[in-house]
Every structure is written in C-alpha cells, then in structure tokens.
Design a protein around this nucleic acid. Structure first.
Lengths: 337, 337
DNA sequence: GCAAGCTTTGCACACGCTTGCAAAGCGGAC
DNA sequence: GTCCGCTTTGCAAGCGTGTGCAAAGCTTGC
C-alpha cells in the first residue's frame, strides 16, 4: 500500500510530449534545452508534483549532495551553535546535512563514517572524536572529503580547522595580571582534547614566562556540573586563587555559580573569571563572562567553501590547514575592563 | 581524480567467487544464503572495504532509511535537546537523520519538505513552523510519513504529538495562589504558536476561575532578550506583579535576570517565577527555576516508534494523535515548595 | 536408486536518473 | 540550392542495487 506513487521523469515527459532526456535536462543546470521545451516540462512537472529523485541522481553522478555532520553532545550550547551555522551554510550552497550522533565510546566515529560511506556522502565534517586512521583512508579513497574541526590530527588529506587556543590562553593570562591577580588557576575537564590541552598549556606557559605558578585542576566532562566541582576543589584550598581561566564557558558558568552561591565570593572583586567559546549564556546578566568567541560563522564558512571547491589542488602533499583567531569578548568577570 | 573508486557488489562477488546476488543477499537481513557463502562474501567485502550503496538500495526498495528533521533555531536549548533525542533514537532504530534548517520565512517549511521528497525520505518530523496543506498532501501521497511535534494542526494523516499545555498552566496558577501570590502575570512571546497560546489561555482561565486577573504581555521571539524586555515592561507598572509565569524557560531566565539585576527584586521572596521546558539552565544555581519538563525522550520515542511501525493502520480516518504530560519540576523560584 | 521437499544459487529485469553520441532542425552566407 | 555551424533532441547505455523465478543441489525417507 505504501510506495510506487512516485512520479518519474517518464510520466512528466509523456504529459509534456517530449523525451525523457528533455525532462532530465530541464532539471540539470547548464544543460541544453530550448525555452519552449523547458516551459512545457516545468508546467507538466508542477501539475504532477514531480521532484527529481536525488537517490537516482546521486547514483548516476556519484555525488549525492549529502554532507555528514558527525558530532556528540549536540545539545550543548557551543556544539549546537556550530551545528546551526554549518547546516545553514551547507543549505545555502546546495548541499544537505546528514546528522550523526556519536557517543564517547570507541569506534563511535568510525561507525558514523561507515554510515557516511553507505550514503555516499560527498563529505563528512567531524566535530567530536577522532576517526581511526584506516577509516580516514577508506573515506578519502572513496572520494569523500573530510573536515576536522578543532580536532588536532596530523593525517594528511582532511581539511583541518583550528583556533589559536595556545595564544589566546596567553592573552588572558596577561589580562589577569593587569587586573592585579596573583594566584592563577586553570579549570579543565578530563576530556583531554587537543584544544582544551592547548588552552591549558598556553595559559601555564604564559604565566610561567611572567614568573607565576598556575594551579591546574581537571575533572569530569566539559559541563556545568564539572565546573561546580572544580570550584569546590579550588576554593577550599588554603591559598584560594584570585583568577581562574576555565577551559570552557560551561565550566565557567558552573564555577561562577558555585563561587557565588556556595562560597559567597564576589566576582570580579574577589575573583576574576574567564572562559572560552562565548556561548549565549556567557552574555547573560548572571554571568557577564569575559571569554573568547569561537568564530563559528567563519569556521562553517571555511568548511563549506572548501567543500564547494570543484577542483581540489592535487599538489598532493598540500595539506590544507586553517587557523582562526578567537576574539576576546570583554565583559564584566575581570576587573578593569 | 574524484570518483569511481567505489567498490561495488560486482567486485566483491568476483573476489569471493560467487554471484552478485549472493553478495546482495548477504547484506539483506533475512535473505537465503548458506553460511559458507556468507562467510566468503563478508571476508571479501572486508578486504575490499565494500559498503552497500544505500542510494541504490533506496532506489530499488523505494525506502531510503532517511528521516528529515525540519527545525528552526537549532541552537536553542530546548530544540537541541529534542534534536539530540530524535537523532539518537532514530539511529538506534536503523534510520538516519537529515537535518533541514528553516527560518521564520513563509514557505521555508515547504521548501524543506520538497527537499525531503527529493531524497525520498521515509518520513519527516516537523519541530518548527507548519507546512502548507498542499505540501502535506504531496508528502503523504509520496508515501512519506509525517510527524508534527507541538504544532497543532487538524490535517489528517500526520502523527501529532502534543503536550497538555493548557492543563499544566492551570496547575501552576494553583501553585502561585498557594504561595500567597495575588497579582499574576503571564510573559509570552509574539510567536503565537498553539503551544504558547495554550499555556497563556490555560493560565488566564485557571486564574479567572479563582477570581483573579492576569496581566499578559507579549514581546519578540521566544528568547532571553525578550524575557528582559518583558520584565522591564511589567516591573515598572504601578501594580507590580508578584508572580509571573513565563511561556518558556528562556523567557524566564531573561525575566529573572532583569528582575534581580536591574530592579533588585528578590526571587522568590518578592516575586515568584515559573517557566516551561526545563532546559538545562533552569537547574543552574543562578536560576533554580520551577518549570514544566518537556518529556523530550518520550516525545522522540513515540515518534520513532510510530515511524518504525511496518503496517500503518489503514483504518483511514484513524487520525493518530498523542498527548503527553509535562511534569512539574519543583525548584526554588516559587515560595514554599 | 528414486521421488519429494527444502535450501541455495544464478539469471535477468527493474528502479529513476544522467550523458555521450549522432541525428535532426534551423539560420545564414555564398 | 548547398554547405556550414550551431542548437536542440532522442536514443541507449549505464550507475549499484533487490528480488521473482527457475534451475540446481542437498537431505530425507522409502
């Protein structure tokens, strides 16, 4: 009872009194059809409710128009913001996004990429996790383009888009010093991804170069609750820090909430806080968090632009890699803006 | 340089020394293949890195395995949470999600559905906006199943999943009264969707039945900033409300922030607040918002379950419609929990 | 050894589309 | 009228699958 109610080019052709090729060409940009034929085809198509079958088209052209977005924790503010930009810009460039959710389990990303291969996706964008090298190769061999966002990896082939985590972290250290802070701390998660570790190392290094130590704590995954726990650990130390850089805005929100509501600490008077990502909540009055903005729009733009390049530079060893700058958004969680 | 590097069943068959049908059957659950043949096929497939081409399979079976999720404002907490549940549960039931972003413009949803038809999606789930009746019919005629989440609409055919917005709103009115509040207010957006309006009407009606008036204000879209604006309007009235029900948690967050930081109002002592959705931020210490939880997991489960039904009850006029209950999550923004 | 029944296998067609190729149509220059 | 060049059109060959059908193979019971 279900199917076979699809209208095919054959029926449109019959109704319009032209050949089936004419129909096909009408819907193929740049193909050679006379105005009169096109008009009749479009009219017939409209009447019948015809829509080109992209499965069949993809089969012929070896090009499905599908781009896989591989991501875990979609419901997280930063992730969902990036997702939004990517889907929007992909749509604008005539592609369509297939969303595959991964968990933290091993092989989760690999399974996602296999799915991408099955649907003959033109490309996959990986926002979380890292694929096994063999799978990466399999994808590339299948003519699938790969984009890694904020995943540091040295495999050649995929486009890599990264931020200047290390340098940014250095800038915030300077800002803390200028605000008169002397006991610096860094709050991190245990996820250990390259971007998070980059921020940590950059912060510690910059502080060291100014002759200061940094208390580093890591806990849990990168979320609000982890931030609270980190605050509890750090703010009960005998030498309480007077400035903390949180690897993530979510951590920072948790940290601030614990600091204020459990310890009665005033921010930024007694404690300066900075974060990273510039999620929407960072601008809410309860936080007014000074943070680094992920340039999500630019990230998406760069990715889509690369995916839309028809001719890939075959200068083989040409490993594409893009580095974007995270802008510091100055708010009110550090003294003396 | 690009394509034609795909491995097809043909090559696997040759390598395994069997017919192409044998390969096809090996990857078709429930088909008849001897263990020995299956083993050899799987081995050859593994060596060659073969993956069934789902475009071709979809073409044959008239069943792509694709489910379109049509949604605007993906980056919003409630939306992204629902999205997360849907993609996860779809994956678990062997489907794959295609994400289409709509804006508020007219025809945006229709365009999305046309895209769904082109990819011969098995189904579409609509989280935002409403399609034109003619497009709905077109989808149904194409054997595509439709799910409308929190969109009230009386077209027969699509599965409709809704909450008990009206009744929930009534319950919160009672809670406000019990907390001793006497000057009730309702903060809404101008979006005017049935669920938002249902909450408004339910609240006003319940208050009226207890002999109380409700000050209603509507502004902007359903976001944090709108909540702040609404607070500014309502809290500068001569008769300042002592309880406000916000149509959405995001509105509530904005409202609370403005109330506290701009007006120095203490919550819940001077003002009781309630929201709807139970987004993650509602549980943050800065808000501790009493709110109704959208049963996102159940919503997704119901949708996926219906989509997985092989036989649709053909008792034609059988219009499927599901009503779920939003549970009240009691926190600290109303006196006397 | 043979018939019957069941499982496994291969053939060939269909799905809806694109596109190279050659034929057809058209207009203009001579 | 003829020839040339250009645009438009139709034919037909694929793209990688699934599956009905009939043949083949195997097992069992006599």
């Amino acid at each position: 009872m279900s199917s076979k109610i699809f209208i095919s080019a054959r029926e449109v052709a019959d109704r319009a009194g032209v050949s089936r090729s004419a129909v096909s060409r009408t819907f193929t940009p740049g193909a050679s059809v006379s105005d009169e034929t096109r008009r009749r085809v479009l009219e017939a198509a409209e009447e019948l409710g015809y829509h080109v079958n992209h499965l069949a088209r993809g089969l012929m052209r070896n090009e499905s128009g599908i781009v896989c977005l591989i991501v875990s924790d979609v419901a997280t503010p930063y992730r969902s913001a990036l997702l939004r930009e990517l889907t929007l810009q992909l749509q604008n460039s005539g592609k369509v996004a297939m969303l595959i959710n991964t968990d933290r389990s091993d092989g989760s990303v690999d399974r996602a990429l296999r799915q991408a291969i099955r649907y003959r996706a033109d490309a996959s964008v990986i926002l979380s996790g890292l694929p096994d090298k063999s799978i990466t190769q399999l994808c590339l061999r299948n003519g699938q383009r790969l984009v890694l966002i904020n995943r540091d990896d040295d495999q050649p082939g995929p486009l890599r888009i990264n931020l200047d985590d290390y340098e940014s972290a250095g800038r915030i250290a300077t800002a803390f010093l200028r605000a008169g802070c002397r006991r610096l701390a860094f709050a991190n998660s245990e996820a250990g991804t390259p971007s998070l570790m980059g921020r940590e190392r950059g912060f510690v290094a910059a502080a060291a170069s100014m002759g200061m130590d940094v208390v580093v704590e890591r806990h849990g995954q990168t979320g609000y609750e982890a931030g609270k726990v980190l605050a509890q650990r750090m703010l009960t130390r005998s030498e309480r820090p007077d400035a903390v850089f949180c690897a993530t805005d979510l951590l920072a929100c948790g940290f601030m909430d614990a600091a204020r509501h459990q310890f009665g600490i005033s921010i930024p008077n007694q404690l300066c806080v900075a974060g990273f990502d510039d999620i929407e909540q960072a601008s809410w009055s309860s936080y007014e968090l000074t943070t680094f903005a992920q340039p999500v729009a630019s990230i998406a733009a760069k990715a889509v632009e690369w995916l839309s390049m028809t001719q890939l530079e075959d200068s083989a060893a040409e490993v594409p890699s893009i580095r974007l700058r995270a802008e510091l958004v100055w708010r009110n969680s550090i003294r003396g803006g």
